[in-house]
Design a binder for these strands. Structure first.
Lengths: 207, 207
DNA sequence: CCTACCGATCGGTAGG
DNA sequence: CCTACCGATCGGTAGG
């Protein structure tokens, strides 16, 4: 393609538009973000954005699907579908950390969705489906004797993924903590516990 | 006071106004909530709200202070300031769960704040101060040998309170899970771990 | 991609 | 002069 063949401004791709939109949605909130403020950040007019997407909510849908598709892909991986439940659970946790760190802004946006629009409600539905799969996995691990039976599987899975999801609040890529090291710290803490020695482990009072 | 001495409508108190405001802020986001929508929920006009508070941001300030005051009160309790660091840490975790469940809407709002206004930035500053106290406590517990030393104290404290804070995403009072049972499940999971037996605990391969 | 707009709604305030 | 509001409207900005 010759230079002369290019018409108009270089412009933005849908991907770069989506990156900026998600960044601003995370800063200000989806509803509080105006299309004009997006346009200003992109250095174009509001109407230019409507060349790429038909509506504001379509930007949200694209962003949420990207996060959800990544998370569901983890559930479909071989290591998540066969073997001891405790190992499958650990794989899902590590895979979720990998997707969360790799697609951080998209997962962050997903976790802030409150169901105010149909698009948000659909995303919440997919999140609930993900939670069901994880809860079933925790229940299976309890049945197999590898997870402590004294905590309800639904509560356990929520604590587990509450911890994973909370990473969006502070983890920033490019720092000293790599995604793999982060996953190690999280799995160690949640699977083995913070304490050096479990209390009453040898049948004596710990204090 | 006689009945005849009361003038005007019975009206709303500042407290009931604040309760409704925080509820709507959590549903729609602070910025996306209009004073008119608050007025509609209260069954009064917008002007009536301005009789109680000088501005929208003042409602936010009152709500965030209530959450932060509750959390800082936990840090000042005797059980949080003396004794073995691991026990002080457990007390702060249990106290935070108690405040979170007791003042759920206020803490939920606090955790959604992103620093878009001066009031929000002040709240974020107080949250960072809380985090520093917890991190110091984790470091102390590591020095005392009661918390595993192979995870950075800053990471540990973030995982710990990431899990606590994630409770706002799913815990609802009035259900079968009491605040105390919730705190037990969380402390068990995080301090002792999900696994029934730590791998390599007796020097043999666990799998 | 822009200029030029729309129906409606924003946070906040007037007099009574 | 008080508390507890109301009906109407201000100058600007929202998504499309």
């Amino acid at each position: 393609m010759t230079v002369a063949a290019r018409r108009g401004r270089p412009g933005h791709s849908l991907d770069s538009l989506l990156d900026v939109a998600v960044e601003v949605f995370n800063e200000r909130g989806y509803e509080a973000t105006s299309m004009d403020s997006l346009a200003e950040r992109l250095g174009v007019t509001k109407s230019a954005i409507y060349h790429h997407v038909p509506s504001k909510v379509e930007l949200l849908r694209l962003a949420l699907d990207r996060a959800l598709d990544g998370l569901f892909a983890v559930l479909a991986e071989p290591a998540a579908t066969s073997g001891p439940a405790i190992d499958r659970l650990e794989h899902v946790v590590r895979g979720s950390v990998r997707v969360l760190t790799g697609e951080l802004p998209f997962v962050t946006l997903l976790l802030r969705v409150r169901g105010n629009t149909e698009v948000e409600q659909h995303a919440l539905g997919r999140r609930r489906e993900f939670d069901r799969v994880v809860t079933d996995l925790v229940r299976l691990a309890e049945d197999e004797g590898s997870v402590r039976p004294d905590v309800d599987p639904a509560v356990t899975s929520r604590l587990l993924f509450g911890t994973v999801n909370s990473l969006t609040e502070w983890y920033r890529p490019g720092g000293p903590l790599t995604p793999d090291a982060l996953a190690d710290a999280l799995v160690t803490t949640l699977f083995t516990g913070l304490r050096t020695t479990p209390p009453d482990f040898f049948g004596k009072k710990s204090r």
